[in-house]
Amino acid sequence: KFNKERVIAIGEIMRLPNLNSLQVVAFINSLRDDPSQSANLLAEAKKLNDAQAP
């Protein structure tokens, strides 16, 4: 279950337009470290993406 959620979360994070490459890598590394947190990490990535919108 967590592996599928992690793959989906990674794909979504990679498509967030307002994150820089270091932020994307940090979120992906966090997902690798704890796949059970996929939903929480994706939500945090989306919040950061929205906050950094031009």
Rank of each mutant, 00 (worst) to 15 (best):
Asn29Thr: 13
Gly11Asn: 07
Gln23Glu: 02
Asp33Cys: 12
Arg6Gly: 15
Ser21Cys: 14
Leu22Cys: 14
Ser36Ile: 07
Asn20Tyr: 06
Arg15Gln: 09
Asp50Trp: 07
Met14Arg: 09
Glu44Met: 13
Asn29Lys: 10
Val24Asp: 00
Glu44Gly: 05
Arg15Cys: 14
Ala26His: 11
Val24Asn: 02
Ala53Val: 07
Ile10Met: 12
Arg32Trp: 14
Leu16Ile: 01
Glu44Thr: 08
Asn3Lys: 03
Asn20Gly: 06
Ile13Gln: 01
Phe27Ile: 06
Asp50Cys: 11
Leu31Glu: 01
Asn3Ser: 04
Asn18Ala: 03
Ile28Ala: 03
Ala53Lys: 11
Leu22Ala: 12
Ile8His: 05
Ile13Asp: 00
Ser30Thr: 12
Ala39Cys: 14
Ile8Trp: 05
Leu42Asn: 01
Leu41Phe: 07
Lys4Glu: 15
Leu16Gln: 03
Lys47Gln: 10
Ser38Cys: 13
Leu31Asn: 00
Lys1Thr: 05
Asn20Cys: 13
Asp50Ala: 10
Ala43Gln: 09
Ala43Lys: 09
Ser38Ile: 15
Leu16Phe: 04
Val24Glu: 02
Leu31Val: 09
Ala39Tyr: 11
Val24Lys: 13
Ile28Arg: 01
Pro35Cys: 14
Gln23Trp: 03
Glu12Thr: 12
Phe27Tyr: 06
Lys47Glu: 06
Asn18Trp: 12
Asp50Leu: 09
Asn20His: 12
Phe27Thr: 01
Ala43His: 08
Leu41Met: 10
Pro54Gln: 09
Arg32Thr: 14
Pro35Asp: 08
Ser30Phe: 12
Pro35Lys: 04
Leu41Val: 13
Val25Gly: 10
Asn3Asp: 15
Arg32Glu: 14
Ala9Asp: 02
Pro54Asp: 12
Ala43Arg: 05
Glu5Val: 04
Ile28Thr: 03
Lys1Met: 13
Ser21Tyr: 13
Ala26Gln: 12
Asn49Trp: 01
Asp34Gly: 03
Val7Thr: 12
Arg32Gly: 14
Ala51Ile: 08
Ile13Asn: 00
Ser36Tyr: 09
Phe2Trp: 04
Ser21Arg: 12
Phe2Arg: 15
Lys47Phe: 07
Glu12Asn: 05
Val7Ser: 10
Asn18Tyr: 12
Asn40Glu: 09
Arg15Gly: 06
Phe27His: 01
Val7Lys: 14
Ala39Asn: 09
Leu31Met: 05
Leu41Thr: 12
Arg32Phe: 15
Ile10Gly: 02
Asn3Trp: 15
Gln52His: 04
Ser36Lys: 07
Ala45Thr: 00
